[in-house]
Simulated scan of single mutants.
Amino acid sequence: MIAALAVLGFSVNGYAQSPAQSVWNGAFTAEQAQRGKASYTQACAVCHGPSLGGGDSAPPLSGGVFLNNWNGTTTGSLFERIHDTMPASDPGSLSGKTVADIEAYILQTNGFPAGAVPLPADQQLMTVTKILATKPAG
């Protein structure tokens, strides 16, 4: 039992010391962002604008205001906000896959690089990937 706890302790310690995951590490795929662009056009553009610049009652989803608002949060937090409150006319109506695709498009539009693995369609699986406005050194 003590040996098992020691191994678990080393595993947790090793995980805690691993480099932080961020959107700069390729948190979505290019294909996912393409699907997200189509979904965004259908479900979001009427309020947030066709270029994600915001509207009369909707904040921008790209640029400095967006990055300042979401800097230091996780992709899971953004997923939860979109999933639970959007679209304003029918909150909670978008599937997890659609929300993840839209989020990928938002991240791509903000200049974050695509990677090999798509954003998961489950907020609980996104709790460690940080949205960072500037690329970390290294």
Rank of each mutant, 00 (worst) to 15 (best):
D84A: 03
K97A: 15
V99M: 03
N25M: 13
A30E: 14
G55L: 01
H48N: 05
T127W: 12
H48C: 07
G63Y: 05
G14E: 01
C44G: 12
P118A: 15
H83W: 08
A114F: 11
G53V: 02
A137W: 07
A88F: 03
P19E: 13
D101K: 09
A30G: 08
S95M: 08
G63K: 07
S62D: 12
Q124D: 13
A20W: 08
V23Q: 06
A6T: 14
A33S: 12
G92E: 13
G64W: 04
S51N: 14
A121F: 00
N13V: 00
A88P: 01
P91M: 14
G76V: 04
G26F: 05
Q17L: 15
C44R: 06
G111A: 15
Q34M: 10
G96W: 01
G26Q: 02
V128W: 09
S95Y: 10
L78T: 13
C47V: 07
T41I: 02
T74H: 00
V65I: 09
N68K: 15
W70N: 11
K37N: 09
P118G: 07
W70S: 14
E80G: 04
P118L: 09
G138N: 07
G76A: 01
T41E: 13
S51F: 15
F10K: 05
V99F: 08
S89G: 07
G36S: 06
E80P: 12
Q42R: 13
K97C: 06
N68H: 11
L61Y: 10
M1E: 15
